Amino acid sequence: MSVRTQLDRIVHLLESRQPLPELRPDKVWNAALDEEITALDSLPGASSTAMIALKAGLHLCNDSLDRSHSYSQEIEDDAAGCYWHGLMHRMEGDYSNSKYWFYQAGSHPAMHSIGPKAAEWISRGIDGIAAAHQDRMIELLREMQHQHVWNSGLLTDAIELQESGRAAESTRGVLQYLQRHELIELLAYSRTAANG
C-alpha cells in the first residue's frame, strides 16, 4: 500500500469518527491507528517539518495527546507546529498554555478557512441555544459567529467555561463540533503542506 493510500485511509477514519470526540479526551481513540500513524513513512517530496506537523495532527485527531505533543515540540519554530501545540494543550485542559501557542502560531492560513465555516454553522443553531441560555457562553458563540478569521482563543475560553461546569450541558455538542472542525481544517492544511 502506498503512503498516500495509507494516509487517505487514516484521514478517512479520523474524519468519520462517531460520536464526536470529547473536548478533553482521557485516552487514545484507536491504539492500533496510533501505531500506524507513528510508523507512517514520509510522503515523497515532503519536508521533514511538514511531515512532523502532519503526524502531530493525525495523532491529535486520534486523541493521542502525548504523541502529538512530542511531534509539535520538534517544530516549535513553525506556525503549524505552534498551532498543533496549542490545540493539544487545550485538549489537555491547559488553557493559558494553549493560548500562548496560538499566539506563537500567528494568523495561520488555516484560520481563514475555519472562521467562515464555523460562523455559518453557529448561525444555523445559535437561536435555539440562545433562547434557552443567556450567559457568557452565548456571548462567546456570538463572537465566534462574527469572525472572518478564526480566533482559537475564543473557542478555548468557551471550552474552559464548559469544562468548569459554568455552562449548560446542552452547549457541549456545539463546542465538540467546533473543535473537531478546527482539527480537521488544520489537518487538511497540514496534509496539503506535506504533499508539497
Score class of each variant (00 low, 15 high):
V3F: 07
T5I: 03
T5W: 08
Q6M: 11
D8G: 09
R9L: 13
I10V: 08
I10D: 01
I10C: 03
V11F: 07
L13G: 08
L13T: 08
E15M: 11
R17S: 08
Q18C: 10
L20M: 09
L20W: 02
P21N: 08
R24T: 15
P25I: 00
D26F: 06
D26Q: 13
V28A: 00
V28E: 00
V28P: 01
V28R: 00
N30H: 12
E36S: 12
T38Q: 04
A46C: 11
T49W: 04
A53P: 13
K55A: 01
A56N: 03
G57S: 08
G57W: 12
L58Y: 00
L60I: 11
L60K: 04
C61G: 05
N62C: 08
N62P: 06
N62Q: 06
D63R: 14
R67Q: 04
H69N: 14
H69F: 09
S70L: 10
E74L: 14
D77Y: 09
D77R: 15
D78H: 13
D78Q: 09
D78L: 07
D78T: 09
A80N: 09
A80C: 05
G81H: 03
W84A: 10
H85G: 10
H89E: 15
H89Q: 15
H89C: 08
R90C: 11
R90M: 11
M91E: 13
G93F: 12
G93I: 11
D94S: 15
Y95M: 15
Y95S: 15
S96I: 11
N97I: 06
K99G: 04
Y103N: 02
Q104G: 15
Q104R: 15
A105I: 06
G106R: 05
S107M: 06
P109G: 03
P109A: 02
H112V: 12
H112I: 12
H112L: 13
I114T: 13
A118H: 07
E120C: 02
W121M: 09
I122H: 04
D127N: 13
D127Y: 08
G128Q: 09
A132E: 04
H133E: 06
M137E: 00
E139K: 11
R142D: 14
R142T: 13
Q147M: 03
H148R: 13
V149I: 10
V149G: 03
N151A: 12
S152Q: 06
S152K: 04
S152V: 04
S152C: 12
G153L: 00
L154N: 05
A158K: 01
A158N: 10
I159S: 12
E160A: 14
E160Y: 02
L161E: 07
Q162I: 01
E163Y: 04
E163K: 10
A167E: 10
A168K: 03
T171M: 06
R172Y: 02
R172T: 02
G173W: 10
V174E: 15
Y177T: 03
Y177E: 05
L178M: 06
Q179A: 06
E182K: 00
L183F: 10
L183Y: 07
E185M: 08
E185C: 10
Y189A: 06
Y189S: 01
Y189Q: 01
Y189L: 07
S190Q: 10
T192E: 14
A193K: 13
A194R: 07
N195D: 07
